[in-house]
Design a binder for these strands. Structure first.
Lengths: 237, 237
DNA sequence: CGAGTCGTTGATTCTTTTCAAAGCCCGTGG
DNA sequence: CCACGGGCTTTGAAAAGAATCAACGACTCG
């Protein structure tokens, strides 16, 4: 149970469960549309837009966020290759989706997808599982944002990205950040200054190494895991 | 779009979409089991438990929460009459579920439910919608916890409860809180002291009235809405 | 009536935010 | 090729909001 909890901490990604197999099945079931290529900082859709398509990330990173009227922003998820964007039962999108890198998206007409899902339990289950994974991720992030301090939040994020690498066969100790400090701040509910200071602190105490601002090397994974689990002593913060 | 956003803020409840109709259909499709009666503070299940049943609240309130190892607790949702508990694609529960009032739950064997959902698209869609609503609620709460200050968080909660009353045909200005200050604190990621002080502040400036500690009367709904939307001036905090 | 839980209030501390400024990286263009 | 400009990151000092520590009052239940 402990291991399971850890493995889900702010796991913004869940490619494993919905990756290649689901994509192939969807390919053959939903009429193929030309993929959409988005420039960095370009929006896929906005909150309130009618849902015409569901998207699946083929390449790049897309951030999903909500805002308050005075501009405060909360990123609720980062979508990476394999992840679905825009799933849900409502008629309108409930959040904004913005590419944060150059990204390529597979476009699935919402109506057709709904149709297929109703007649093909297998596809329906894929979507159900994807939605379920997003709910897990959202609730884990809620625990992170609501209960962890700045250091623990960043540790949890780095670990989640490291595990993603692991699942994808990449080096789990080497993390190439596709998001800016501002994106990380809005995801973890901190300010850019605090994020920056926390990176510096983790670097200075030898937990991580910063090749440059967007390339993190994990030096002491154990410490990160203790921090994320809420087991670190006060002195280590 | 604005109105829609507002109507979803930390909407821990979403009975409308999954209430009576779905319940009836499920009744006829899944073998009926005796309802489970839970005392206040009794647990329905714990994180890591294998999922044997899905539950639907018939009466009372159940809180869903996650914890860190040192005891810090984050309530991720309050489930009220009509709400499903335990939906998801994993084999184990990803959170704890504890009744916070006397509660009656309908028990649905997970296997049978899965079976029925696969053969009956209508039931499948009901579950999909319920899951989708929970995802919306989780992300709204994320915005609340991550970006709003103490006063705004409480305002958002009170408004969500008020809207629930409205949907159920009850008086939207009269809110009977089924949760303690500690529950509210762990839901909004505050301390009991801060929750208590914030209630006092809202009472003193005439926004609400406290008949007693668990009965709130909304006096100035407009102010609550401005607070929750992030439109209030600094002076009003 | 006493024990215990829950809620409120006050004083102080602390983490993070805010405000300010400088450094760095990189692409553009002279 | 190097100067310039702008965005992103880092660092410092001060301020603020919420947490912590402490105590008391209210209500409930044996």
């Amino acid at each position: 149970m402990l291991a399971m909890t850890l493995s889900q901490e702010i796991d913004a990604s869940r490619p494993s469960s919905v990756a290649a197999p689901a994509a192939q099945r969807l390919d053959s079931s939903v009429r193929r549309m030309p993929p959409k290529v988005m420039q960095a900082r370009e929006h896929v859709f906005f909150e309130g837009d009618p849902i015409t398509h569901i998207y699946q990330v083929e390449h790049g990173t897309v951030c999903l966020y909500k805002t308050l009227h005075d501009g405060r922003r909360q990123i609720v998820d980062f979508a990476h290759a394999g992840d679905f964007i825009g799933l849900g039962a409502g008629g309108d999108h409930a959040f904004n989706a913005q590419a944060i890198t150059l990204a390529r998206l597979r476009c699935l007409p919402a109506g057709a997808l709904h149709e297929v899902a109703c007649h093909n339990p297998d596809i329906g289950m894929q979507l159900y599982r994807a939605l379920s994974d997003q709910l897990l991720a959202a609730r884990d992030l809620l625990l992170t944002v609501g209960q962890r301090n700045a250091t623990e939040r960043l540790a949890a994020l780095l670990l989640a990205l490291s595990r993603r690498n692991e699942r994808n066969g990449a080096n789990p100790a080497r993390i190439a950040l596709s998001m800016t400090r501002a994106d990380i701040a809005d995801f973890l509910s901190l300010t850019v200054e605090t994020v920056s200071r926390t990176f510096t602190k983790l670097r200075q105490n030898g937990t991580i190494e910063l090749a440059h601002s967007s390339l993190v090397v994990i030096r002491d994974r154990h410490t990160l895991e203790q921090l994320a689990a809420g087991e670190a002593k006060r002195s280590a913060l």
